[in-house]
């Protein structure tokens, strides 16, 4: 796998989009922290951008890249390389490059300007978020052979997680305003990796006091050390499940 990974990694790192993504993230993070006198506020602004761009770039770039790697995959499959390894190498390569772009772009300014604990939390969670959406991209691109359909699907999924899911949650809040649905909603929000990441960071930023009872419930479930372990396990599952499904499908795919 290492041998395949080498070629994948070299190819991606030369990719102009990844470089541009890194530079844009870096430009934004540095400007946010140097314009805001208050680091906490800078973190909140950065959080907004990260929640938007990291999933979008990760899923879109990966989907397109996998479709463009069809030839590469075909070429390798006729040689003595395990399919598992090709797919895993592609996944590792894409994940590594997305994570590297995120850490170089956003992680370094975070470490410099933000509180160390929050910086570490945001770096780990943001990296996981990148990998999650790479994994989802793998699922999208294996589901359909048609590149246009695959890209469409990945944009739909991004839109769902970034926007529609929250809309749904808000809708539930209003529909069931008279019922004690806090716990259910908290459980529900764990179903969206973007929301889970956002709330984890917010809790660390002390905004939990403003979240009233729901915040308290969330703090109870996710705020403790075990809660943090639990949340990161959930995030890790978001990586493992889509990727393993895609791997299974890839192993059975005719090329």
């Amino acid at each position: 796998m290492i041998r395949v990974l080498k070629y994948v990694a070299i190819d991606i790192l030369k990719n102009k989009i990844v470089i541009a993504y890194t530079i844009i993230l870096a430009l934004f993070s540095w400007s946010v922290f140097s314009l805001e006198d208050n680091a906490a506020k800078g973190i909140l602004s950065l959080l907004n951008v990260i929640l938007l761009t990291v999933p979008l770039v990760s899923i879109l770039f990966s989907t397109i890249y996998i479709y463009n790697s069809n030839e590469f995959i075909e070429l390798l499959v006729s040689h003595p390389v395990k399919r598992n390894k090709i797919w895993t190498a592609l996944f590792t390569g894409l994940s590594l490059s997305m994570v590297a772009a995120y850490i170089i772009g956003a992680g370094i300014p975070l470490l410099i300007f933000a509180d160390f604990n929050i910086a570490i939390l945001m770096i780990t969670a943001g990296s996981l978020l990148s990998v999650i959406f790479v994994a989802v991209a793998f699922l999208c691109s294996i589901i359909t052979r048609d590149k246009a359909k695959g890209i469409g699907l990945s944009i739909m999924l991004w839109l769902y997680f970034a926007l529609l899911f929250d809309g749904l949650v808000l809708f539930l809040f209003f529909q069931f305003a008279d019922y004690p649905i806090e716990k259910i909603v908290v459980a529900l929000s764990a179903l969206s990796p973007i929301d889970l990441f956002r709330i984890l960071v917010l809790l660390k930023l002390d905004v939990s006091a403003m979240m009233g009872f729901t915040g308290a419930v969330f703090q109870d479930i996710f705020g403790s050390t075990w809660g943090l372990v639990f949340s990161f396990t959930l995030l890790a599952l978001w990586v493992a499940i889509p990727f393993l499904i895609s791997l299974r499908m890839f192993n059975r795919k005719d090329l």
Binding site: L44, L47, N48, L51, L52, A162, L163, D166, G167, V169, L170, F173, F174, A177, I181, E182, V185, V186, S189, I194, D195, R198, I199, L202, V207, M210, M211, G212, F213, T214, G215, F218
Partner: peptide
């Protein structure tokens, strides 16, 4: 109107 909605604070939507 709906305090639990605070959970959506800072979300893109």
């Amino acid at each position: 109107k709906n305090p639990p909605a605070m959970l959506l604070y800072r979300s893109f939507m």
